[in-house]
């Protein structure tokens, strides 16, 4: 059978004119064709990373490094233990503002309306920026927790809870401000809120029993509540973005 079918490869004259007509029609279709690309999540992450301002990804790294430096210096002092956690978590609470700022910048520059009419919707852009911000912050928090655990000889989980809770609770405040204030320039609002949060968590310096074993459950409860509230705020924000009023900068 192979021989007979192989012979068919050579056989059958094709009318050159008709072939040319068919190819011309195909060519016309190609000219009119619009290639539709659907970028992958990886590409969308890359686009934001490539085009957005880098400072709000760098600042958390610099801040975490600075905090660790300060804490290291202080750890040489006798009796400084709880204070180290309090200091670090206070600084990390402040660090949370950079993620909020990066999201609010979209709206501060009126880009929100324009991006809402793009294929890659402003809601997705916000989500991507939060993922990038979250990743950097997450890594920094883990590094700090790991290092601090070594210095303090505490359980990693405990240290994580002590640091993560102020971070998330403060983020709840930042995003609440973003959702309900809608000022044109949120930068100063966030800086002020960050300073307030940092100070509030520093108050724990005067409450040493807050870090005792028995209080761990309370910390975890607070962490859980923060997570729930934060997720709720993010969902609300994305919902409001999809509704549209939030992204529109200019009303007659």
């Amino acid at each position: 059978m192979e021989k007979e079918f192989a012979a068919l490869q050579k056989g059958l004259l094709i009318d050159g004119k008709k072939r040319a007509v068919a190819l011309a029609r195909i060519s016309k279709e190609v000219r009119e064709k619009k290639i539709r690309v659907t970028p992958s999540l990886g590409h969308r992450l890359y686009v934001q990373l490539h085009y957005m301002e880098k400072w709000y990804l760098l600042f958390p790294v610099l801040m975490a490094a600075g905090l660790l430096g300060v804490v290291k210096l202080l750890s040489r002092q006798e009796g400084w233990r709880i204070e180290l956690i309090s200091l670090l978590s206070s600084g990390i609470a402040f660090m949370g503002i950079f993620g909020a700022i990066s999201v609010s910048r979209i709206f501060a520059n009126h880009m929100g309306e324009l991006e809402a009419a793009c294929f890659f919707h402003v809601g997705e852009i916000v989500a991507v920026r939060m993922i990038l911000s979250g990743l950097i912050n997450g890594v920094m928090i883990c590094v700090c927790a790991f290092i601090l655990r070594g210095w303090m000889r505490e359980e990693l989980l405990k240290v994580l809870v002590y640091i993560l809770t102020p971070f998330l609770a403060s983020n709840c405040l930042y995003f609440a401000l973003f959702l309900f204030l809608r000022e044109k320039n949120m930068l100063f609002v966030f800086l002020a809120a960050g300073a307030v949060c940092a100070c509030l968590w520093l108050i724990l310096l005067c409450v040493p029993w807050a870090y005792e074993e028995g209080m761990l459950a309370a910390w975890m409860l607070l962490l859980l509540v923060s997570v729930i509230v934060f997720i709720g705020e993010v969902c609300l924000m994305l919902g409001q973005i999809r509704e549209g009023e939030m992204v529109c900068s200019h009303w007659n």
Binding site: K10, G11, L13, D15, G16, K17
Partner: peptide, 13 residues
Amino acid sequence: MEERGGCSDGISE
């Protein structure tokens, strides 16, 4: 140049 394909095989082929 009107036709394409085919070949110069003999009649029996």
